[in-house]
Nucleic acid binder design. Structure first.
Lengths: 143, 143
DNA sequence: CAACGAATTAGAACAATTCTAAACTGTGAG
DNA sequence: CTCACAGTTTAGAATTGTTCTAATTCGTTG
């Protein structure tokens, strides 16, 4: 009953290939984490939540490694960091152009596809600066 | 040369009035902090930066009080909290509708007036949720 | 001006994250 | 197949920003 309602992990082979592609050595831990993260389209994890998940799956990975891995994946373009909460960092497996709903009370992030929202009128940044990207966070609450 | 290039502090009387208006007891520390914060239109501070500033001005206020005060001011609607950096919280003296440029490397926030940016196409939130507000952060870098 | 509740404070405590130094493990060379 | 080495992992300590605690001090009202 309390079975995880998620698609089966991607295979170790797929994960390995993905890691090599990104220039990362496919270690046991990275393969394991990639397997969990990239099993389906959209996941939002924190270091803690991912650590709990991987631990719960009976795999031994230290929290430090989870942090390292999340950052390496992010640098490699496999993940994107989402800053919506002062308390913790979220990582999103959707690296494409999109935005988020955020339910602060529950730490819940929901993707909004990139084409859905249009941001018009962003002024030119002050001289010497250039736009890196535009983040939209739609903060919501339970009613 | 190294003189602060900021307008003179608002008077203690002004600050006091403002605090009373917001239903806050005008204590020495709150008057002092309000004096620094509301001297001109747009300021973006962190607890640390404000503490350094007030300390530098020779006033003795504990860091705990700065934190307390920033939160109380925020609750009272005198400040607005801005979440753009996983590492620290910013507080903005501009409580009106507006958005931000953010230069992460330097922790620099720049206001973008509310009318400037238009966000279109925000989808209805999932059932049971309602929109609290829409934040836009234009992340910029030095070039 | 007394008294009481509100505010301040130093320092401890906390949570998330990063660092450190030592042990371990992929990988490519031989 | 095995070695050696750079890259990785790890436990635990350290750091950072923030909150809490309990005792002291202060503003306000009577």
């Amino acid at each position: 009953m309390a079975k995880a309602s998620r698609e089966p992990k991607i295979s170790a082979e797929e994960a390995t290939a993905r890691l090599r592609h990104a220039g990362l050595r496919p270690t046991r831990q990275r393969v394991e984490l990639a397997g969990l993260l990239f099993q389906d389209g959209d996941r939002h994890v924190t270091a803690e939540s991912l650590h709990d998940e991987v631990s719960g799956a009976g795999v031994k990975v230290s929290l430090a490694t989870v942090y390292n891995t999340l950052h390496q994946f992010t640098e490699a373009g496999l993940l994107r960091q989402v800053i919506v909460d002062a308390a913790r960092s979220y990582f999103d497996t959707n690296t494409g152009d999109h935005q988020h709903f955020f339910l602060e009370k529950e730490g819940l992030l929901i993707d909004i596809p990139g084409e859905t929202i249009a941001v018009a009128g962003v002024p030119a940044p002050p001289p010497g600066l250039s736009v890196d990207r535009v983040d939209v966070v739609v903060r919501v609450r339970r009613n």
